[in-house]
Design a protein around this nucleic acid. Structure first.
Lengths: 148, 148
DNA sequence: CCTGATACGTTGGCGTGGCCAACGTTGGTA
DNA sequence: TACCAACGTTGGCCACGCCAACGTATCAGG
């Protein structure tokens, strides 16, 4: 009657970088989802709002490109955001194929709330690491991502 | 006519640890999926085979627990593996609620092929990092995961 | 012995994130 | 004018993770 026979994954995995990366990312994702959940929003929504705040009113296509979300997924997420009044869709007078997406005041307000919650999530995530270790981690991950 | 207006995500994200973690994990997952794909298998399948090779014949429940896969997902993945003859399901004579899962010879062979492919994927993933940096990364990620 | 809690395998479903194909519309260009 | 490209939109697929429910089987307590 072993108390806890197998705590986690096969030993092979626990030293495999891609596995550790996945586990850490899952953990981080959980914290982030929880944080965004307090504002009633998902990852796509936040990303779009953040991009919008950064680059100003844009077409859906540019918006999607600027944050790595597929055109079709942008549509759905923007529907949610527009329904909640965080964003406004208006036809581009200069190019009738496009919609111009604008961040509303409410959108800017909620974005702030999201970022506050996210900052707290980052702190929770990085809590077990020293300041120097955090910088190291960011450096290493950036290197990996750059090589993508 | 800017050549490439926005290369990637909102600036806010590119320094956010959880975002970098996710990006790196996605990249790693892509490499891993590609590697496992050469053996015609997905993540769940590999994990189960690896766990099975490590702890020997076990019930589905224990198997799932040992590699963090939900019971219901274990069923489906084992169906695939059994259909391909990589694994054998037999009723446990000592406890008729259980199935004993056994790794077949073919299963052990394919597992080897998966691990070879995975080793290559890890090398590709870590290519941009020095030996010391790789160790650092593993250490930092392990710390994060341990705090989960 | 019986009863109730618990574990098992299984089915079916939901949500997130990522991707692709196709369509009709509009723009730009040869 | 014809053609191709980009746009927004619909609809679909996959991987992974998680949960609820069911019928069966086991086991511990009364």
């Amino acid at each position: 009657m072993e108390p806890a026979p197998a705590p986690q994954a096969p030993a092979r995995l626990n030293t495999t970088p891609s596995w550790l990366l996945g586990q850490a990312a899952t953990h981080a994702h959980r914290l982030v989802a929880e944080a965004l959940g307090t504002v009633g929003v998902r990852g796509y929504h936040y990303r779009l709002l953040a991009a919008l705040a950064e680059i100003g009113p844009t077409s859906q296509a540019d918006l999607g490109r600027s944050c790595g979300i597929d055109r079709s997924d942008v549509v759905a997420a923007l529907n949610d955001l527009a329904d909640r009044g965080l964003v406004e869709r208006s036809p581009d007078p200069g190019d009738r194929r496009r919609n111009v997406i604008t961040l509303t005041v409410a959108g800017r307000r909620d974005l702030r709330r999201m970022e506050d919650a996210l900052d707290r999530a980052q702190d929770t995530l990085l809590a077990p690491l020293s300041r120097a270790d955090r910088d190291q981690l960011i450096r290493l991950l950036s290197t990996l991502v750059a090589e993508r």
